[in-house]
């Protein structure tokens, strides 16, 4: 195996240009599991943890190399809430936002937040940068639009962050658990509301009919919330697996979305 350990973004992009199919390594919390347990043996690796540009975080952009631990104590409410649920403290010390996007697991905890925010993913190669809307970037389970030679630089945030953001995640253990269902709801100052759910389909889902129902300045009545819950359940496509049945996921998604929405008013 060949490894490159670039110490700056240009150097990283040059390494990728020279070896576009190299495996990218950030915190290692996904890749090393494959190396250890399914015996994946990458021919070449570009290790990104020394690239300072990827760890930058300003008002419009969060670098792909920002760790869960930093997100957990950071100023973005939804992101802080979700980051706290990822893996263990050891995982959060090294795992990154970019890694979560790049792995694109259907249960990835950052993905509902990305989708609810209508955020964009910034990709770079030695040929330049491009920005993809979250739904252009996430193509399916563990599939993204990242091209060989490209690197996830970070997440481009909207001009104004929604003042109300809430995240929730169901798992059957109090810590260190993969989502059975996760959900992020954000509400703008004008009442526009966006709802995204994970682990209920091949990739993260927006519940757009449910969003339309509750967008606006009026606090929804119980009847509207019931309808909201029902719409959420209609807009997802969960499956049965060893973690839960599709029926439970559908049920829980409704409950979780409703409660997460209600937190945007509290």
């Amino acid at each position: 195996m060949h490894i490159e350990r670039p110490e700056g973004l240009d150097e990283a992009l040059a390494a990728l240009a020279a070896d576009p199919h190299a495996t990218l390594l950030a915190g290692g919390t996904d890749l090393m599991v494959e190396v250890n347990l399914t015996h994946r043996r990458p021919a070449s690796v570009v290790a990104l943890r020394r690239v300072p540009e990827l760890r930058e975080w300003d008002e419009r952009m969060i670098g792909a190399g920002v760790s869960w631990a930093r997100m957990e104590s950071g100023p973005v409410t939804g992101l802080a809430q979700l980051a706290r649920t990822v893996g263990s403290p050891q995982i959060r010390a090294v795992g990154t936002l970019g890694g979560n996007l790049g792995t694109a697991s259907p249960a990835g905890d950052a993905l509902p937040w990305l989708a609810a925010l209508d955020a964009e993913v910034v990709l770079a190669s030695d040929r330049g940068r491009r920005r993809l809307a979250w739904d252009e970037f996430l193509l399916g389970p563990k599939r993204t639009a990242r091209q060989p030679g490209e690197l996830i630089v970070g997440v481009q945030l909207p001009e104004a962050l929604p003042p109300h953001q809430a995240f929730a995640k169901v798992g059957v253990r109090q810590a260190m658990v993969i989502a059975t269902v996760n959900c992020c709801v954000v509400r703008d100052a004008d009442g526009a509301t966006r709802v995204a759910l994970g682990a209920v389909g091949p990739t993260v889902r927006r519940a757009r009919r449910a969003e339309a129902l509750v967008s606006g300045t009026v606090r929804p009545s119980a009847a509207v919330l019931d309808r909201f819950e029902a719409l959420v359940r209609e807009e997802i496509a969960p499956i049965d697996d060893h973690r839960a049945s599709a029926a439970y996921r559908r049920h829980a998604a409704g409950v979780l979305a409703r409660r997460t929405l209600e937190r945007c008013w509290s």
């Binding site: 195996m1 490894i3 350990r5 390594l25 915190g27 290692g28 919390t29 890749l31 090393m32 599991v33 190396v35 250890n36 690796v45 290790a47 943890r49 631990a69 263990s88 403290p89 050891q90 995982i91 010390a93 090294v94």
Partner: peptide
């Protein structure tokens, strides 16, 4: 668990070469 540059990490998830 070990300390890597002062942080607790799982040594099994650290690529030695990195």
């Amino acid at each position: 668990s070990v300390l890597l540059d002062g942080e607790v990490v799982c040594a099994c998830l650290v690529l030695a070469a990195d």
